[in-house]
């Protein structure tokens, strides 16, 4: 341990000096970011959209007017009525109920996929950036190789080889998507670990795990949060896109992309069955995009540095 450190605690010395870093280092900053987020009307609209769609999905069994799988061949492709508020599809199934239940498929699958992507990408990127050496070389070689592929093409081919199914689609997404996070986190860790407060923590004898988790990752977290929020929108589109192609959810599962694909065959009769799931996907993706944009604006380090350089 460095002798000087004996006089102060690690917590005190590792507090950043001279301008606060862009991370959520103090609760004050978190509060400031939340306040500016709350003032951002577009971001609030995004949050409301996301919350409503999640609530609608969670309470689908109570909100749905019908069984989403119940076939009613006497009433196929029927217009909206009291019994079927959004009409029925080509098998006489209630479009509204399928839409509500569809949220229980698409949204959680995208969220779980994102969680796994983060669980793989974050630690690999952090280890690679922090330790360097052979570990870094190995991880970065793999990352480079993955980046040589067009991601969506590779995801399609992986999902196609594994065979149809939502789990396989999710696996394919994880396989091509973790790379982005590993690369992002590695780059940030490389720069953060040179900063004074991290050096101070190291010289105070903090363990590697403590330095990474307590000092480095909080700096990385805001950027990752923005990217993850925006990626939720992208993942929703990509997963429902593969379902649209017939690779993801299999009938009769009410998944939005699959519903749209089924409705496509009956466009001459009605396009409500296409409009409903299409609008649902677009709305939820829009919600995440608005929210992600808002969070980024709320804590854009560039805006902040410009602000401090003026003052």
């Amino acid at each position: 341990m460095h002798p000087k450190c004996l006089m102060v605690t690690e917590r005190e010395i590792s507090r950043p000096v001279g301008g606060e870093p862009p991370g959520w280092h103090s609760t004050g900053q978190l509060k400031r970011a939340s306040v500016s987020l709350a003032r951002d009307k577009a971001a609030c609209a995004g949050l409301v959209i996301v919350l409503i769609s999640v609530i609608a999905a969670v309470f689908a069994p109570y909100l749905a007017t019908n069984d989403p799988l119940a076939v009613d061949l006497d009433n196929k492709l029927s217009p909206p009525s009291k019994r079927y508020p959004l009409g029925t599809d080509h098998l006489g199934r209630c479009v509204l109920s399928r839409l509500l239940y569809g949220g229980r498929v698409t949204i959680p699958v995208a969220a779980a996929t994102l969680a796994v992507i983060l669980l793989i990408g974050l630690p690999l990127g952090a280890l690679s950036g922090y330790y360097g050496g052979w570990l870094d070389s190995v991880i970065m070689r793999v990352v480079d190789a993955m980046l040589a592929f067009p991601a969506l093409v590779l995801a399609l081919v992986i999902a196609g080889m594994l065979g149809p199914g939502l789990v396989n689609v999710a696996l394919a997404m994880v396989a091509v998507w973790w790379v982005e996070y590993a690369r992002l986190v590695r780059g940030m860790v490389l720069s953060v670990k040179e900063r004074g407060f991290v050096q101070a923590a190291v010289s105070c004898g903090a363990s590697d795990a403590r330095v990474i988790c307590r000092h480095i990752l909080p700096e990385v977290f805001p950027t990752v949060a923005v990217m993850a929020t925006l990626d939720m929108g992208k993942l929703l589109l990509a997963i429902s896109g593969l379902s649209f192609l017939g690779l993801g959810a299999q009938p009769p599962t009410p998944e939005w992309g699959a519903m749209l694909n089924e409705g496509r065959m009956y466009l001459q009769s009605t396009w409500r069955t296409v409009l409903a799931p299409g609008a649902a996907i677009m709305l939820v993706a829009l919600g995440f995009n608005l929210l992600g944009d808002g969070i980024r604006d709320a804590m854009d380090p560039r805006e902040k540095t410009r602000f401090t350089s003026m003052g």
């Binding site: 429902s240 749209l260 296409v274 299409g278």
Partner: peptide, 22 residues
């Protein structure tokens, strides 16, 4: 750009077909 980033290609394609072709 928000609309463009949020609308799925398969939905946009069908909408365009319905509007401009049908």
């Amino acid at each position: 750009s928000l609309a463009g980033a949020s609308i799925p290609g398969f939905f946009l394609g069908i909408l365009l077909i319905q509007i401009f072709a049908v």
